[in-house]
Design a protein around this nucleic acid. Sequence first.
DNA 1: TGAATATATGAACATATGTTCATATACTCA
DNA 2: TGAGTATATGAACATATGTTCATATATTCA
Lengths: 142, 142
Amino acid sequence: MVATATGPAPPVRRAVSNSDAADACEVFVADARRVAAVRAALVGTGAVELLAETFRVLGDPTRVRILDALSHAELCVCDVATLLGLSQSAVSHQLRILRGLRLVRSRREGRMVFYTLDDDHITGLFREGLRHVEEASKGERP
Amino acid sequence: MVATATGPAPPVRRAVSNSDAADACEVFVADARRVAAVRAALVGTGAVELLAETFRVLGDPTRVRILDALSHAELCVCDVATLLGLSQSAVSHQLRILRGLRLVRSRREGRMVFYTLDDDHITGLFREGLRHVEEASKGERP
DNA sequence: TGAATATATGAACATATGTTCATATACTCA
DNA sequence: TGAGTATATGAACATATGTTCATATATTCA
């Protein structure tokens, strides 16, 4: 936190400084100091794009199910398809996407290709997300 | 892990048991025992959907930037818009989505509405994702 | 009350995305 | 080598999604 907004900062109502960022519309800033401080602390564009792409890849039910399956055992494409009731093509397409972000790893063995989670990478996120969700669904306000 | 696939399990090549899951196509299972074990361990549909939706919401560059900004300070809508060079409308729409999943919380103060991260919820995922991505971009294979 | 301002929201539109279908590639075995 | 099988991939299509534009709602202040 930059400006520990207690007693939430008197709305200064100063026009947006025509520095670099915004001429988007006639938007005013409530607290120019706070905005400036936050701007300086923002994550770089590269990290934003990469992070968003990572989450986007994780944000599909089919891919979640595939990762869930692979978190329990190494499986070949046809096993995944059978297990989840999906077509071989659909599974293969999705595995390609997961592989592209290094979330899974493949190992060929004869005609078959076995997939596992690539534990070196963001896989932990999946596990943690699952924990969060399972908690959240319990602690939902009634 | 269910079947610690060392010496990766002789491909049994048994036809898919016509139990409940799959008649999707003529797909065969490589290891019926392993598949059955994994099937029993799969996460429920509800959790899958919720997890995927959570990640999906996190999987957009604009929303990542908004969360990044809010991770540094409490901000009103116009501040976020100014800060990120976005239209007020776009920000408001996105904040609605984030609010829908309880990732941010809003607090009205006069005409303005201030937003903060809802730390009780999956926000930790965002932070951790960021860490992962920043590591990953360093440790990329050259 | 009425003008001004901050935020919210519905409709429309362009783009992105997941699945299917058809087919290509890679590997095994006779 | 050729048939058979497991996986990969390109094209097409239906659906989902983010932004903009216009406008509604909510609050303050004269």
